[in-house]
């Protein structure tokens, strides 16, 4: 329907002495290792990916897989070596410095792994920082900052300095700052990796709550596969700078595209990931009470075991979209095949 908010085509980012020159003369099909042997590091290798409006794309990969580099290409914190990236239909590589600054001031927000807070500014001043940079007056700045502070639940901490806050609170400040300008596009670079596991879980819930309210277009980076499964509309799995597979969690778990992806999902409890909707085959109808497409196999476990029907209808928002085979679902539940 809409054109994608972010559209990357054949994006390369190579680090080294003369990346552009190297890439021009590089023969096709050079692997990450080949390129390294040539004295260059391929941060991003020939990546093409689109992000639709309101979608949450999670980029997943181990450290050094190029996921952070890729997101920095999207926001042009890195200049790409070749390919094009369009944001809202504009090629960001062609923007002047002033246009780029305007774009960031009006459309983009970013959250960092180690928070990236300015140590000499209070919570309020940190959050109001992007507003201050675009020249808003003190009063509106303050009003807006207080609004976001409330949104992330930091009331009463406005005058604290970052070092006086816990890690979770600091990241709330980071999130609030990235939301202050009401961006359309929200980049999150491993926002919860530096936090303790329990707090991480809370923050993920908090994040889902915020996204429920705000409905932004999101590019979320993580090295934690469970986190990716939990949050994503679609997941892009990266290795050595290239995207191995980019699909919905259900599809990745059911049909891993490569060996590498398959190894990743080995230990995943597929019943928790796969939804009825993904199992539903269009054209089949089935009989009796339908199940909701957003329910996971795990959630339906009880019913699947007790139900007698071979084929169970699936509905999305009350509309029939097809039916799933009970046996397929049971196989997933019992980890067969």
């Amino acid at each position: 329907m809409d054109r994608p908010v972010i559209s990357a085509k054949n994006v390369w980012k190579v680090f080294g002495r003369d990346p552009k020159g190297y890439l021009k003369t590089m023969p096709d099909g050079r692997s990450f290792e080949d390129i390294r042997a040539d004295g260059y590091i391929a941060g991003v290798r020939d990546v093409s990916v689109d992000v639709a409006r309101g979608e949450m794309l999670v980029i997943m990969g181990l450290s050094g897989s190029g996921k952070s580099t890729l997101v920095r290409c999207f926001s042009r914190l890195h200049e790409i070596t070749s390919g094009t990236i369009e944001v809202d239909g504009e090629v960001i590589g062609d923007l002047s410095e002033k246009e780029l600054i305007d774009l960031r001031r009006s459309k983009m927000g970013m959250v960092f792994q180690s928070f990236g807070l300015l140590p000499h500014r209070t919570v309020l001043d940190n959050i109001a920082f992007p507003l201050e940079m675009r020249g808003q007056d003190r009063h509106t700045r303050r009003a807006r900052a207080l609004e976001v502070i409330k949104l992330v639940g930091l009331e009463g901490r406005e005058d604290y300095f970052p070092r006086e806050l816990s890690g979770g609170q600091q990241q709330r400040v980071g999130i609030a700052r990235s939301l202050a300008i009401e961006p359309d596009i929200w980049f999150l670079d491993e926002p919860f990796s530096a936090l303790d596991p329990l707090i991480r879980r809370d923050m993920q819930d908090e994040f889902l709550r915020l996204q429920g309210i705000l409905g932004k277009t999101i590019v979320f980076i993580t090295h934690d596969f469970d986190e990716a499964l939990r949050l994503a509309d679609r997941i892009a799995i990266m290795k050595d700078g290239a995207v191995e597979q980019c699909d919905t969690p259900d599809q990745i778990v059911m049909n891993p595209a490569t060996e590498y992806v398959a190894r990743f999902i080995e230990d995943v409890d597929r019943a928790r990931v796969i939804h009825a909707g993904a199992l539903a085959r269009a054209g089949q109808l089935g009989e009796g009470a339908p199940v909701d497409s957003r329910a996971t196999v795990k959630q339906l476990a009880h019913q699947l075991v007790n139900d007698q029907r071979a084929i169970i209808p699936v509905t999305e928002n009350g509309k029939a979209i097809g039916a799933m085979s009970r046996q397929d679902a049971l196989d997933i539940l019992l980890k067969v095949g």
Binding site: R72, S75, L77, I101, D102, R104, R105, M108, G109, M110, F112, Q113, S114, F115, G116, L117, L118, P119, H120, R121, F129, P130, E132, M133, R134, G174, R177, S178, I181, F187
Partner: peptide, 27 residues
């Protein structure tokens, strides 16, 4: 100065002068 603070400054839409004055020197 930590690269994340620099990037945070850039993503906040700082001009070069603002980067120096509000990000680099205080950090």
């Amino acid at each position: 100065v930590s690269p994340e603070i620099v990037e945070a400054g850039k993503m906040s839409g700082c001009t070069r002068w603002q980067m120096l004055r509000h990000v680099y020197i205080p950090a």
